[in-house]
Nucleic acid binder design. Structure first.
Length: 1121
RNA sequence: GGGGGAGUAGCCCAGUUGGUCAGAGGCGCCGAGCUUAUACCUCGGAAGUCGGAGGUUCGAGUCCUCCCUCCCCUACCA
C-alpha cells in the first residue's frame, strides 16, 4: 500500500532521507554494475578549484554534469563518473598566505617552502573533502572519495609527510607515505576524483613540455611585462584579461627642457609618474603637426591636435613643425642625476655604444592625439610597448623596480619606496625642480591582478613561453600545408572545427581567441604548482626540458636522493641537477612553477592514463561531452586542452562543449557577501532544497545569465509542487480505494475502459519521453524542462482536474480502475523522465508507486531505463491534436460566458460548434467532455451552410506570394471583404485571380451580430437563453458551492459528515436538494432555521431568492451512500 | 581601436527561409470565473511609433545601409 503523501512536502527532509537510502543500498554502485560494459559515454569533468566551499554558481554547472550523466546512464551507457579537483596555483597560495598572515614572498621563504607547499596540499584536501560532501548533497553521482579519508590523509600529511599510511583502493589496500599517497590520488589503484596535483598529472605535463621543446616552441623571453607586486610574479595574457578595472590615476603633464633650444620644453603626459625615473626618450608621430606655444615666459612644444585637452590657461601659438623635424632633439630628463640613470646611459645605444646616451625625441608610428600631449614618455623598463620601441631603436633600458614593486638601489631617495605609492612624492619633487606642468585625475581601465586585485606594474623580467606560431596575413583556407605545420595556432583551429560548440557562438569566440592570442607564458615565479622541468644553463645559455620523472632520474647527476620519495613539487624537485647538454656543466631547474592551466589542460590525457594504459585511453578519448561556464574558459580550460591535445595528438580532446553563462544575485549584480545578495550553497540546499535548485538551473537558458535568489527559487518550487500534488492526489484516492498497481510493475496494455482522456494523457507522456530524450541527446536541457513543465501543466489542469470524479465515489469500478491505472502509469513514466533533473522527487515518487513487494521493477528510479520504447504504444497524435482543439473550444466557450455574464455553474441548453476539417472526426469523441467542462446540455455541430457562419477564404501567402507579386494587395482585399467565388473544382477566384485549392484555406467565420467566438476556423456559439429549469439547476449548484465553501471555512475534514439547515430554498430548487445533500455529505437536511447555535450562517443569493445556510459537523455520523 | 551579440507591452523575453490586426511563454497589474489534490487554476483586459533614419520588395520585427544605446570578447594607447 502507498505511503501517505503530504500535500506540502518537506523536500529537504525527503532529500536527506533518500541520500541515506542510496548510501545504505549502494544504489549508485548498482547502477555502475548494471551499465558496466555498455556503450561508452565519456564525460570529462572540468576541475573545480579545491580552495573554498563550493558556491551556488558551481551547483549550476554541476546540475548539468549530473543530469547528463544520469540521462546517459538511463540509456545504458558505461561511464567513468570521475570528478576533478584543481589543486595547484596561486589562488591556493594566496589563501594559505592570508591564513599565515604573510604579506610577501620573503615571508614564505623564511617560513620554509616545504612546509608552505605542504599547507597548500592540506588546504586542497580540506576543500576537496568539503566540496565532495556538498556535491553529494546536490545529488551529484560521481565516484567520490570518502571525505573522511581525505581529511585523514591531510592530517597525516600535516603530522609527518613521511609516515606510512594504508588506504583502501578499489582493488585492495594501498600502503605508502602520506605524501606519496596524496600524490597518487585519482590514479587507478586509488580511484575517486582526479587531482591536478597528482604525480601523473604533473608527469604528463612534463611530457607535453618536452614535446613542445622538441619542436622548438619553448623559449625564454626578456621583456617588460605585467607584474603583480604583491604576488611577486608576472601575469600571462590570459590572466591579464581577468582583471581590467576602472581606476583613477594621476594624469601628470611634465616638461622636458630641450637642451639645444633654450627656454623651450616638450610637454609630456603620463598616468604612471613612477615610470618617469626610467624615462629614456620622448616619442612623436612623424606625420603629426606640432606647435610651439608661449605661456608667459615659458615656451612649450606640443601636438597641435592636443592643445585643447592639454594646455592650461591662455597661450599663443608661435611656431609649427611636423613631428619628423622634432626627431633627434635632445632634452633633459627629470631624473638624470640618479646613479641608475647615469649608469644606464653611460653604455650608449646599440648603434653608438661608445658615447653616453642622452634623452632625445624619437619617432613612433603609434603616437596619437586622442589623449595626452602628442608626445609620449618612453620608459622601456616599465612598459611593454616602450620596451619594443626601445629595442627596435637600440636604446638603453632602465629597470626601476624589484619583485615587490620597490625602487632598486641607485634611485636615490626613491630607493626602497613602493613605486605605486610614490606618485605624490614624485609630483612634489618635480614641482620643486621645475619639471611640473599640470596634474589632473584621470580615470581609465587599468589591469589588476585577478587574484588579489593589486594594480599591475610593468617590469623587466625573464619568463618562459610556448610559441603559438605565426599569424599569417591571409585567410585560413588559403594556408599551405607548410604554413599550417609551422604554426600551432592554426593547427588548434583545425581541431576546433571538429568540435560541436553549444551555443554556436562559442565556435567563433574560440577561433577569435586563437587568432589573436599571444605566445603562452607558462612560468610563474611562485612556490606551489607544477615544477617547470626547464634546465637553463647559465654557463652556455643552452636549456633543456625534461619529459618525465623517469627521464629526470636517468639524467640526474646529483640531488636525486633528496627528491626521491617526494611528489614533483618544490623544494625537493629543485635539488636535482642534470648535465647541460651544451657544455656539460651541472644545471638546476629554473625555480619557476607552471601556469595552472597546464594542470587542467592535460586532463584528457592524465585522467585517461595516456601513458600507463593506452588501451584505456583509446576507449575514453576523446570525451563525448564537457560543460563549463563560458566566461573565461575560451582562453583558459578549453584553450589549454585544445593546445595540449593538438600538440600531443593533433586531434580534438572532446566532441561537444556545452557552455553556460554567469550566475548573479537576484538584483542582477555579482553575488557579494557585503551586498547582501549572496547565498551560500549549504544554506540554499537546506532552505530551498536541491531539486528546486536543479529545476531552476535546468530551466534556465544557458546562454543567459541567471539571477539567483529566493524569489526565483519560489517560482521554481511552485512548478514542482504542481507535479507533487498530482502525485499526492493519486495516492490520496488510491489508498482508500484499495487500488494497487500490477505486481510486475509494468505499465498495462491499454485498458479496456480507457476513456479518450486516459488515452490522451498516456499519449502525451509517451510523446514527452520521446521529445525529452531527443532534446537531451541534443544537449538542450532548457527545452527539456519546458516540455516537462508543459506536461505537468496538462496533467494537473486538464487530466486530473477533469477526471477527478472518476477517482472518488465512482460507481463504475472499471472506469475507476482505468483512471487509476492511467494516472499511475503516467506518474511512474513521469518520475523516470524527470529523474535526471530531479533525482530526489523522482525517486520518492517512483518508489512509493511501486507495487507492494516491488515486483520485478528496479528498486530505484535511477536503475530504470529511459521509457521511450515502453511507452511508444500509447502514442496517438490524432487524439492529441483533437484534444488541443477541444481545449480551444472550451476556452472560447468560457470567453463567451464571460461576455454574456453567465457563470460556469449555470448550465446552458446548447452550444453550437463548427470545426475546421482536420480534427473533425477525432473531436467527435470529445464532445461529451467538452459539454461537461463548459456545462452545457447539448452540443450541436454546424456546417458551412449554417446561418450562423460565413465562409471566409484565407489565401496562403507563402505559397502564392512569389507567383502573384504585385497582385497580392487586391487578392487580400477581396479575401477580407468576402468578395470571392468558389469554383466547382475547389479553386477560388478573387480579386480577378484564381487560386488553386491548395493555395487557400476555407474557414468558417461568425456572421456578424451573433454571440459567437472563433479562432482559425473554429466557431463556437452558445445559447444564452435560460429556461426556468436551467436556472434552478444553476441555483442548485450555486447552493452546493456555498455549502462547500462553508465546510472549508469551518475547517472540516474531507470526509466529515454534516447536518444542514437551509432557509428560503426556492421551490424550483427543491428537486435538486437530495443531490446537493449527497455532494456535501449532509446526512441531515432541515428546511428552516436551526434551534440553538450550531455555527455561523451564511447567505447565498440565488436567482430564485436568497438562501440562508447553517451547518454543523456530525462526528462519525452514519454514511448515506 | 577591432570583433560579436542585443534593443519587441511595466519587467524578463519568443518571433523559423520576408507573408499581412505584432505575441509563444513567464513575472506583475486590473476585472471576472473556477475549485474541498494544488493559498492553485481558467478566461478576459489594459499597455508597444518592434532603438532611430533611410533603402530593397506587392509586402519588412525579419533583408541591406547609416546612426544611437547597452552587453560580451579582444587590444601595447602613453
Amino acid at each position: 500500500m502507498f505511503r501517505p503523501v503530504p500535500t506540502r512536502p518537506d523536500l529537504v527532509g525527503l532529500e536527506h532521507e533518500l541520500l541515506g537510502q542510496w548510501r545504505e543500498r549502494g544504489t549508485f554502485a548498482k547502477l555502475r554494475a548494471q551499465n558496466a560494459g555498455g556503450p561508452r559515454w565519456s564525460f570529462l569533468d572540468g576541475p573545480i578549484t579545491a580552495n573554498n566551499p563550493m558556491g551556488v554558481h558551481h551547483a549550476w554547472g554541476r546540475t548539468y554534469k549530473d543530469l547528463f550523466q544520469r540521462f546517459h546512464a538511463m540509456l545504458g551507457a558505461d561511464q567513468r563518473w570521475q570528478n576533478g579537483f584543481d589543486c595547484q596555483g596561486l589562488w591556493v597560495e594566496v589563501n594559505v598566505e592570508r591564513d599565515l598572515g604573510f604579506t610577501s614572498k620573503r615571508d614564505i621563504e623564511a617560513f620554509g617552502i616545504a612546509e608552505f607547499v605542504s599547507l597548500c596540499k592540506q588546504r586542497v584536501l580540506t576543500y576537496a573533502a568539503r566540496q565532495t560532501e556538498q556535491s553529494t548533497r546536490l545529488g551529484m553521482w560521481m565516484d567520490w572519495d570518502d571525505p573522511d579519508e581525505l581529511r585523514r590523509l591531510r592530517d597525516a600529511l600535516a603530522a609527518d609527510p613521511g609516515q606510512v599510511v594504508t588506504i583502501q583502493g578499489p582493488n585492495g589496500p594501498l600502503t605508502d607515505t602520506a605524501e606519496m599517497l596524496v600524490g597518487r590520488l585519482g590514479h587507478p589503484e586509488l580511484g575517486g576524483s582526479y587531482y591536478t596535483f597528482s604525480n601523473e598529472n604533473n608527469d604528463l605535463i612534463w611530457g607535453f613540455l618536452a614535446e613542445c621543446h622538441r619542436r622548438g616552441w619553448i623559449y625564454k623571453g626578456h621583456d617588460s611585462m605585467p607584474w603583480c607586486p604583491r604576488c611577486g610574479t608576472g601575469l600571462s595574457q590570459m590572466e591579464m584579461n581577468e582583471g581590467y578595472q576602472d581606476r583613477e590615476d594621476p594624469g601628470l603633464t611634465v616638461r622636458f627642457p630641450l637642451v639645444d633650444r633654450p627656454g623651450e620644453s616638450l610637454l609630456v603626459w603620463t598616468t604612471t609618474p613612477w615610470t618617469l625615473a626610467a624615462n629614456v626618450a620622448a616619442a612623436v608621430g612623424e606625420n603629426l603637426e606640432y606647435v610651439r606655444i608661449r605661456q608667459g615666459e615659458a615656451s612649450y612644444w606640443i601636438g597641435k591636435g592636443t592643445l585643447k585637452q592639454s594646455v592650461v590657461g591662455p597661450f599663443q601659438v608661435v611656431e609649427s613643425k611636423p613631428g619628423s623635424e622634432l626627431v633627434g632633439w635632445r632634452y633633459a630628463g627629470p631624473f638624470d642625476d640618479l646613479p641608475a640613470v647615469r649608469e644606464a646611459f653611460a653604455g650608449g645605444t646599440r648603434d653608438a655604444p661608445d658615447s653616453p646616451y642622452e634623452h632625445r625625441v624619437v619617432a613612433w608610428s603609434e603616437v596619437g592625439e586622442d589623449e595626452g600631449t602628442g608626445i609620449v614618455h618612453i620608459a622601456p623598463g616599465a612598459g611593454a610597448e616602450d620596451f619594443q620601441l626601445g629595442k627596435s631603436l637600440g636604446l638603453p633600458v632602465i629597470g626601476p623596480i624589484d619583485e615587490d614593486g620597490r625602487y632598486y638601489a641607485g634611485f636615490d631617495w626613491l630607493t626602497g619606496r613602493e613605486a605605486a605609492a610614490a606618485a605624490e612624492a614624485i609630483v612634489d619633487d618635480l614641482e620643486r625642480r621645475g619639471f611640473f606642468y599640470h596634474l589632473a585625475p584621470y580615470t581609465h581601465r587599468y589591469p589588476h591582478c585577478w587574484r588579489c586585485g593589486t594594480p599591475l606594474l610593468f617590469r623587466l623580467v625573464d619568463e618562459w613561453f610556448i610559441s603559438m606560431g605565426e599569424v599569417y596575413d591571409q585567410p585560413r583556407e588559403t594556408l599551405s600545408k607548410e604554413q599550417l605545420d609551422a604554426s600551432l595556432r592554426y593547427q588548434i583551429m583545425e581541431v576546433v572545427d571538429e568540435i560541436r560548440w553549444i551555443p554556436s557562438f562559442g565556435y567563433e569566440r574560440e577561433l577569435d581567441w586563437l587568432l589573436n592570442m599571444h605566445d603562452w607564458m607558462i612560468s610563474k615565479k611562485r612556490y606551489w604548482g607544477l615544477a617547470l622541468p626547464i634546465y637553463d644553463c647559465t654557463a652556455c645559455g643552452t636549456f633543456d626540458v625534461i619529459g618525465g620523472r623517469g627521464e629526470l632520474r636517468e639524467r640526474a647527476i646529483s640531488g636525486w636522493e633528496a627528491f626521491d620519495g617526494h611528489t614533483p613539487h618544490r623544494p625537493y624537485v629543485d635539488e636535482v641537477a642534470i648535465a647541460c647538454p651544451g657544455c656539460g656543466d651541472s644545471v638546476r631547474r629554473i625555480p619557476d612553477v607552471g601556469n595552472p592551466w597546464l594542470d587542467a589542460g592535460i586532463v584528457p590525457f592524465s585522467t585517461l592514463h595516456y601513458r600507463e594504459d593506452r588501451e584505456h585511453w583509446e576507449r575514453w578519448f576523446p570525451a563525448d561531452f564537457i560543460t563549463e561556464s563560458f566566461p573565461g574558459q575560451f582562453r583558459n580550460w578549453f584553450y589549454a586542452m585544445l593546445a595540449m591535445s593538438t600538440v600531443l595528438r593533433r586531434e580534438r580532446p572532446f566532441k561537444t562543449i556545452f557552455g553556460y553563462a554567469t550566475l548573479f544575485g537576484e538584483d542582477g549584480r555579482p553575488m557579494h557577501k557585503s551586498w547582501g545578495n549572496s547565498i551560500e550553497f549549504d544554506e540554499a540546499a537546506e532552505r530551498m532544497g536541491v531539486d528546486v535548485m536543479r529545476w531552476l538551473y535546468t530551466s534556465a537558458r544557458p546562454e543567459d545569465n541567471i539571477l539567483f535568489g529566493w524569489h526565483a527559487a519560489d517560482t521554481a518550487r511552485r512548478r514542482l509542487l504542481v507535479l507533487w500534488n498530482a502525485y499526492a492526489f493519486f495516492v490520496t484516492y488510491a489508498k482508500p480505494a484499495g487500488w494497487t498497481p500490477p505486481a510486475d510493475g509494468r505499465a498495462p496494455e491499454a485498458h479496456d475502459a480507457a476513456t479518450p482522456m486516459d488515452r490522451w494523457i498516456l499519449s502525451r507522456v509517451a510523446g514527452l519521453a520521446a521529445t525529452a530524450e531527443d532534446r537531451l541527446l541534443d544537449v538542450d536541457p532548457a527545452a527539456t524542462a519546458r516540455l516537462i513543465d508543459t506536461f505537468i501543466e496538462d496533467l494537473s489542469t486538464w487530466y486530473v482536474r477533469l477526471s477527478r470524479r472518476r477517482f472518488s465515489r465512482n460507481a463504475d469500478a472499471a472506469d475507476r480502475d482505468a483512471a487509476f491505472s492511467t494516472l499511475h502509469t503516467t506518474l511512474v513514466a513521469l518520475a523516470r523522465i524527470v529523474a535526471p533533473i530531479l533525482p530526489f522527487i523522482a525517486d520518492s515518487m517512483y518508489q512509493n508507486l511501486l507495487p507492494e513487494d516491488g515486483g520485478a521493477a528496479p528498486e530505484s528510479v535511477h536503475l530504470t531505463r529511459w521509457p521511450t520504447a515502453e511507452l511508444a504504444r500509447f502514442a496517438d497524435p490524432a487524439l492529441e491534436s483533437a484534444m488541443a482543439t477541444a481545449r480551444r473550444v472550451v476556452d472560447l466557450a468560457r470567453t463567451l460566458r464571460g461576455t454574456a455574464g453567465l457563470r460556469m455553474r449555470q448550465p446552458l441548453a446548447r452550444l453550437w460548434l463548427a470545426l475546421p476539417g482536420a480534427d473533425s472526426a477525432q473531436v467527435e469523441q470529445l464532445l461529451t467532455l467538452i459539454a461537461e467542462e463548459v456545462n452545457v446540455k447539448h452540443i450541436e455541430r454546424i456546417d458551412d451552410e449554417s446561418s450562423l457562419v460565413d465562409r471566409r477564404v484565407k489565401p496562403l501567402l507563402p505559397k502564392i506570394g512569389k507567383r502573384l507579386g504585385a497582385a497580392i494587395p487586391a487578392v487580400m482585399t477581396a479575401a477580407r471583404d468576402g468578395a470571392f467565388e468558389l469554383n466547382p473544382d475547389g479553386s477560388v477566384t478573387l480579386g480577378g485571380v484564381t487560386l488553386a485549392p491548395d493555395e487557400v484555406e476555407i474557414q468558417a467565420t461568425p456572421r456578424p451580430g451573433t454571440a459567437v467566438a472563433h479562432d482559425e476556423g473554429l466557431v463556437v456559439v452558445i445559447d444564452t437563453e435560460l429556461t426556468p429549469t436551467l436556472r434552478a439547476e444553476g441555483d442548485a449548484r450555486e447552493l452546493q458551492r456555498a455549502i462547500q465553501d462553508l465546510r472549508k471555512d469551518a475547517g472540516l475534514d474531507l470526509d466529515a459528515r454534516i447536518e444542514l439547515w437551509l432557509e428560503g430554498v426556492p421551490a424550483e430548487v427543491e428537486p435538486h436538494l437530495a443531490n446537493v445533500a449527497r455532494e456535501t455529505l449532509a446526512d441531515k437536511l432541515t428546511r428552516g432555521a436551526p434551534a440553538g447555535d450550531p455555527g455561523l450562517p451564511v447567505t447565498v443569493e440565488l436567482s430564485g431568492g436568497s438562501v440562508r445556510i447553517t451547518l454543523r459537523s456530525l462526528q462519525g455520523g452514519p454514511g448515506v451512500e
